[in-house]
Nucleic acid binder design. Structure first.
Length: 354
DNA sequence: TAGGCCATCTGGTCCT
DNA sequence: AGGACCAGATGGCCTA
């Protein structure tokens, strides 16, 4: 593996640029990368025990040299004596090996992050609204995935069809504005209905934005649940100013899980779909809640998206103000719900688009 | 120019 | 000892 790493120039960026030890050895490091690569290829990567034993021998030598000069340096000024293993003096050989270790560790870390990113890419593909041109950011991918899992598990648990608005609301919980737009657009949701309720739930979280409640004179107009009827204060959500179609969709206040609009409550029962995942209650504290979603409306596109001119998000400022709805505008020609997706997803979308 | 996102480096910690 | 994992720091790129 390391052979691959170090034979791949792309995986060996300029180490000196970042490393602190580049300064301590001046121009000597200019050839370091090549030297280190040679070292790896020739000794470590083929498991050259001779080299390793030589290094061990060097270590022994170093120790002999190092141990002696630690005495007397521990009490510097008023500072107490340092505890723990004595610091060994950095001989040139030791410095070299240290550098080598660092380079190897960097390479490992790089591949580890690459693996992580490719896993995230895979996740992007199985989550609703995969787009090659408008990649969801990492954090948005994770949030959407969480919501998606939640939505699917709720469908399985209840065994009945939720309405599209609620489904999209569930998917969009805690997502940034662009991602919300993307999801809603993907599912061809009538933005007016969805956004109004979304804002009801979020309590105007995105209030400064173009599709704040101010954009629409009515609130929760679509809600049919008695809990959300004007004048009804019986529902817990109402006391907090929330109106959610979860009430009507999932049975309303009878279910304690929906006391929080963030549905961060007990995720029970754990469900497994194709054995790929299981919901696991991890407490009510969610990073999203802690962070507080400081997303504002300055987004005009998705993170990572590049200006194409064709992707004015449906719910963006101009669209919302001009009353353009997703059903009328379809700027998502380059995105699709999925190209590789589990069967359940197709069923689900057929579910809503029949 | 500020802010978001990202890749990378780095040192620390834990585990084998 | 070395690898995996993690979090902080840093700098680049892009957009509003």
């Amino acid at each position: 593996m390391l052979t691959r790493l170090f034979s791949d120039p792309s995986l060996l960026p300029d180490v000196q640029k970042y490393s602190g030890w580049a300064e301590e050895s001046d121009g000597e490091d200019s050839k370091m990368k090549e030297d280190e690569q040679d070292d790896m290829d020739e000794s470590e990567l083929r498991g050259d025990s001779r080299t390793q034993s030589e290094h061990a021998g060097e270590d022994d030598e170093d120790e002999g040299v190092d141990e002696e000069d630690d005495d007397g340096e521990d009490t510097e000024g008023d500072r107490p004596k340092k505890r723990g293993p004595k610091k060994r003096k950095m001989t040139p050989a030791r410095i070299e090996r240290s550098k080598l270790r660092r380079v190897k560790a960097n390479a490992r870390e790089r591949t580890r992050m690459h693996d992580l990113n490719s896993a995230l890419d895979n996740l992007r593909k199985v989550v609703p609204c995969y787009s090659k041109t408008q990649k969801l950011s990492k954090i948005e991918t994770l949030r959407l995935a969480k919501n998606y899992i939640w939505a699917l598990s709720e469908i399985l648990r209840n065994g009945k069809r939720p309405d599209l608005v609620s489904y999209v609301q569930t998917l969009c919980k805690g997502l940034s504005q662009p991602t919300t737009n993307l999801v809603a657009g993907c599912l061809q949701l009538n933005s007016r209905n969805f956004l109004t309720e979304q804002q009801c739930q979020d309590g105007g979280r995105y209030g400064s934005g173009s599709f704040s409640m101010h954009s629409y004179p009515y609130q929760c107009a679509r809600l049919s649940s008695p809990h959300c009827q004007p004048g009804s204060n019986s529902h817990p959500l109402r006391t907090h100013g929330y109106c959610s179609t979860y009430d009507s969709l999932y049975g309303g206040s009878g279910s304690p899980e929906y006391n929080s609009p963030e549905y961060e409550g007990p995720l029970s029962p754990p469900l497994c779909i194709n054995g790929n995942f299981s919901l696991k209650h991890q407490g009510s504290a969610s990073p999203e809640n802690e962070k507080g979603y400081h997303y504002s409306m300055h987004y005009s596109g998705l993170p990572g998206s590049r200006p194409t001119g064709a992707h004015n998000l449906v719910f963006g400022s101009s669209g919302a103000r001009s009353g353009i709805h997703s059903e009328n505008v379809l700027p998502y020609h380059d995105m699709h719900l999925h190209h590789e997706r589990p069967p359940v997803y197709d069923e689900l979308n057929a579910f809503f688009h029949n």
